[in-house]
Design a binder for these strands. Structure first.
Lengths: 250, 250
DNA sequence: CGTTATTTGTTCGTATGTATC
DNA sequence: TGATACATACGAACAAATAAC
């Protein structure tokens, strides 16, 4: 008889820790001991619950938690799998998505989620030094590697200076080159803000990730060589799929 | 009769979206419309469920999700409250916790969670350019503002060069000054890595935050003026309580 | 191309434990 | 101590996505 893949620790403390946490531990042990390898599928929730002699909801809770920690990937209708290692995403003077994704050996692609001229929210207005309600050009992109969503990039530009940015981007397919088409070359980052939170329901859908897995939010403001603010960029990363590497400039 | 604080949108699509998501929306609307202000307490789960004519579990799910998004703060036995705004945490050449917390108007404090000489894990060894199993001095601190946990800082130093770092720190109470006691002055950051995930159960306990709220992980390697690696620092932030600001050096 | 089995997602039901005031 | 409020766990049924036939 072979050793079981999952075993609850039947220590004296068994009733001390919540059952679902013990299940979580059991799965983590199975992964770190190599009994489960990246990409491998777990038994179904029903089966796992029966094997351990507990309720399916309790198993679900453990799986949901580990999905959020990035160790498992849950796909509805298909099953639950041990997650692959996240790719390294480099951000430097100005980050280029395509280069980053290609460096990881993936094929980059993008899809426009929303675009057009909108009124600036307080957040956007503050960052671009405008008044709330001022017109800004908004361009929201879903950027993917090998067809898997990596991040949602939200670009906001003052509408008076870049009125048709979205249309130009659709043709040019590069943020840097679209700015160049306005004779803006060599812009640089001015301020950077970082946060982590759970995704909004829409973000979870767009990124095709569970709501329990967090997103990493990277907000930066860019200025042209004359120091004028040209762009507020807020990127929402699927945190389980990337780790961000900040490059030091020497 | 006054308008109710929470209302489900009774659009035609009512049965399209999951009920608990509609509840989430209702709460978000109540907050953004100002019917609920930061610090204010929500009705109990039972009451809310009854008001909306749905099951308590469904309300729970919505509240749990918003806890993870940082909009609500759930305190067992007390109630659920609208969360306060996060503080800005600045990271520059070398970040100083105390200055950051004082700048936010809070009183800084720290508690040693663990310390001692341990064998390097693969992660630590890779970052310090050692072999897994080599001895490192580990110092794990819980850093707080006004008594509220902000981050867990994990410092790892090569044990051969800094054998009694933890003991010295306990007296000196400052990382920078402890390094100075080894004649290391003016170290600088070499590499930085960022990630976001759900906390481990232990981290959730230490940070006194719900397991559903994410943490932001900031890993950096520091070198002395001679270029020798002296320190690998991995900080786990309670993401709902801070937003990280990266300072550009001109 | 539809049918069916499998698998995860949602919802209500019910009971009990535990922290706070 | 009791009341209140959140936490855990088992139970049952159906919905929705996916894959295989």
């Amino acid at each position: 008889m072979t050793a079981p893949v999952f075993t609850l620790s039947d220590e004296a403390e068994t009733r001390q820790r919540p059952l679902w946490l013990q299940v979580e531990d059991a799965i983590v042990r199975a992964i770190s001991a190599g009994r489960l390898k990246p990409g491998e599928q777990l038994p179904g929730e029903h089966q796992l619950a029966e094997e351990l002699g507990i309720h399916r909801h309790t198993v679900r809770r453990a799986i949901e938690s580990l999905g959020g920690r990035g160790l498992l990937e849950v796909r509805r209708g298909r099953g639950t799998f041990v997650a692959a290692r996240p790719i390294a995403y480099r951000v430097g003077g100005h980050s280029r998505f395509t280069g980053n994704i290609e460096a990881a050996g993936l094929v980059p692609s993008a899809r426009v989620l929303r675009s057009g001229i909108v009124k600036a929210t307080k957040d956007v207005a503050d960052n671009l030094d405008l008044k709330p309600g001022d017109k800004v050009t908004a361009l929201e992109l879903l950027r993917m590697g090998d067809g898997i969503p990596i991040l949602i990039a939200r670009h906001y530009m003052p509408a008076d200076r870049f009125p048709d940015f979205a249309e130009r981007f659709e043709k040019i397919q590069s943020i840097t080159k679209t700015f160049a088409s306005y004779d803006v070359i060599g812009y640089r980052r001015r301020a950077t803000r970082l946060a982590a939170r759970q995704p909004t329901p829409q973000e979870a859908v767009d990124l095709r990730q569970p709501r329990s897995a967090p997103v990493l939010v990277w907000g930066s403001v860019n200025a042209d060589p004359q120091g004028r603010l040209i762009n507020y960029d807020s990127s929402v990363f699927a945190a389980a799929r990337v780790s961000i590497v900040i490059e030091e400039e020497d």
